[in-house]
Design a binder for these strands. Sequence first.
DNA 1: TTAAAAACTTAACCTGGATTAATTTTTTTT
DNA 2: AAAAAAAATTAATCCAGGTTAAGTTTTTAA
Lengths: 243, 243
Amino acid sequence: MFFRSNGSTGLCYSCPNRHFRFCKSLLNGSSAEFDAHAVKNIAVIAKQYLYRQGDMNNELLVLREGWVMLTRVSDDGKRQVFRSVLPGELLGFQQHFHGPAIYSAIALVDSVLCKVPNSVEYYSTQPELALSLATSEACDKMLTEMYLGNITHRKARERIAFMALEIYHRLMLRGLNNEYTIQFPLKQEDIADTLGLTTIHVNRTLHAFRDEGVLQIHKHQLTILDYEVLYALAGSRFEFGPI
Amino acid sequence: MFFRSNGSTGLCYSCPNRHFRFCKSLLNGSSAEFDAHAVKNIAVIAKQYLYRQGDMNNELLVLREGWVMLTRVSDDGKRQVFRSVLPGELLGFQQHFHGPAIYSAIALVDSVLCKVPNSVEYYSTQPELALSLATSEACDKMLTEMYLGNITHRKARERIAFMALEIYHRLMLRGLNNEYTIQFPLKQEDIADTLGLTTIHVNRTLHAFRDEGVLQIHKHQLTILDYEVLYALAGSRFEFGPI
DNA sequence: TTAAAAACTTAACCTGGATTAATTTTTTTT
DNA sequence: AAAAAAAATTAATCCAGGTTAAGTTTTTAA
């Protein structure tokens, strides 16, 4: 299915994410406390912040549908985009359950999230779920390391190619692509702040990609026009990524 | 104590790391299987690889003493240094317990590591330990995110200042500093491959820092000469880091 | 102890991408 | 539908850091 419709809520049993990652562990678990019939859904509209850096409202969430972006503004006012959270992925776990958030989470499109248990006490009785938290963190870490490796030493064209292909790949694994087209709500400024480039240079490079028939972003849709060329530029780094 | 002597082995009860991170959880745990009297120590000499990217020997290790560096060589032959593993830190956990390693681990000085349990089955009965794995991964992730934020958009002087201060800070929390001096086994090339710079430019910048009385690296020792200036350059980003 | 290799250093030149400054197009709000 | 705000686009100039090419010093191996 392409571009799930927004606004769905309800049971885990009908959720497209139920076989993946944290949800899978949650539903397979033996906890009497977790009731898949009473999952609390949180609906947010586009541009709404789930929380901001420094906030203490530490909820643990799984994105059911939509798109969430994690950003942090540093002392000098520059903004770093850490990553996009895609459907099925966990959001909000950190070293200290009740410490301040180190980054902000913003919904880029209308989204639905599910609250999952978020206390040390709960996970202290659920080893498989605690292990699933560890796996989720390991996946995030790997993704961040991939971006670190991509940005360090590589040129603008390669960075952008990598990012496009990485996100395409991650959405494809969830069946959220339509051939070579995906939903893509990031602005050029978001790409720039992810990859350490200026908006102007992102614009120049995207324009060149379009002229060359490599990649096109139009009306919040990204289309891969020449997979081979993009793949060669990206360097297949995205393939060692997490599921 | 400054620069622990190498070669010590033995029980957890006398280990300086016993109150930190994963070791703490391991010793506080209720597992009959884990015997702190029979910890398997692994001694490696400088320049020895613990494992290489692609290897399947998936051991879970805690660095008892020494210094381990994580690196990955990509398709195009460029090397990315991901991070340094310092005493007390966990090493080797990944999404799939038995998948190939995505990076190599090399000891930069003579080091001692401790094997800790590494099976899904084990952690499936030890919720607190599984949660400690999750916390460890969250710390690594945060550190990687800090470096991502540092490298993206910032200039060479700031990147190097950040790295020096971050490593100094992390060692200081373990009591492994001597005033403003720390052991520092990284070569200029390692700094370059960590920060996305050339060796030549790292050399230029370090030289300038020495001339300006900011920072000095000599004979594998790093000395902070002007903490204030270094702190101003680094932008206090390292302070939100993990313990 | 000497030879070889690795690491560090310095200088000259060059380029990818930043900066600055508009303008146009699209989206959102009224 | 008009006004305002946000996002995308284009062009001109500039510089931080890359590249190339030698050195020199330090470390390691023979």
